[in-house]
């Protein structure tokens, strides 16, 4: 890992521990030797209160490339996660995480997870990533609501 990437991720971790949005968690995963792998973080993003996503806590993996923060991390829900802007592989399609769009090196882990939380209830119809959720959202809102409700139950904290 480059020193820039390492120092930035250490700082991100420190900042996160000091002040992170309520109900969220994010921490580096353990590597094979039991140490920390700072380039891969496991986060838990709660559905925003007052939205149909409320009640679920959604696991997301943040994979930071060697070139971070010049290049953005890849953020992945579980495979098959139901959302118009999540690819079937689970990868989140969000302009904030796109190097050629809104990504800037100053964007923090906190902003990323908050951005993903906002995306849950405010999908970007112009940038769909999976057909099922996109078609439901566009043409069958009842089915969309039902599927989201089921997913909330699946990811309910308790």
């Amino acid at each position: 890992m480059s020193s820039l990437c390492l120092s930035r991720l250490q700082q991100e971790r420190k900042n996160w521990r000091k002040d992170h949005p309520f109900g969220f968690s994010a921490k580096p995963v353990k590597d094979e030797k039991g140490g920390l792998n700072l380039q891969v973080w496991q986060a838990r993003i709660p559905g925003k209160k007052g939205t149909q996503w409320e009640g679920g806590v959604y696991p997301v993996v943040l994979e930071f490339p060697q070139e971070y923060p010049t290049r953005p991390p890849k953020c992945k829900f579980d495979q098959g996660f139901y959302h118009p802007n999540v690819y079937p592989s689970g990868t989140v399609c969000l302009s904030l995480l796109n190097e050629s769009q809104d990504w800037r090196p100053a964007i923090t882990v906190r902003q990323i997870v908050l951005g993903i939380q906002a995306l849950l209830d405010e999908p970007n119809i112009h940038s769909p990533a999976q057909t099922t959720a996109y078609n439901h959202y566009k043409s069958h809102p009842d089915a969309y609501k039902r599927m989201v409700a089921e997913q909330v139950k699946k990811y309910a904290d308790y």
Partner: peptide, 11 residues
Amino acid sequence: LFSSFRRDFCD
């Protein structure tokens, strides 16, 4: 709030 703090403690 409490369980969120507990999670931080578990970290």
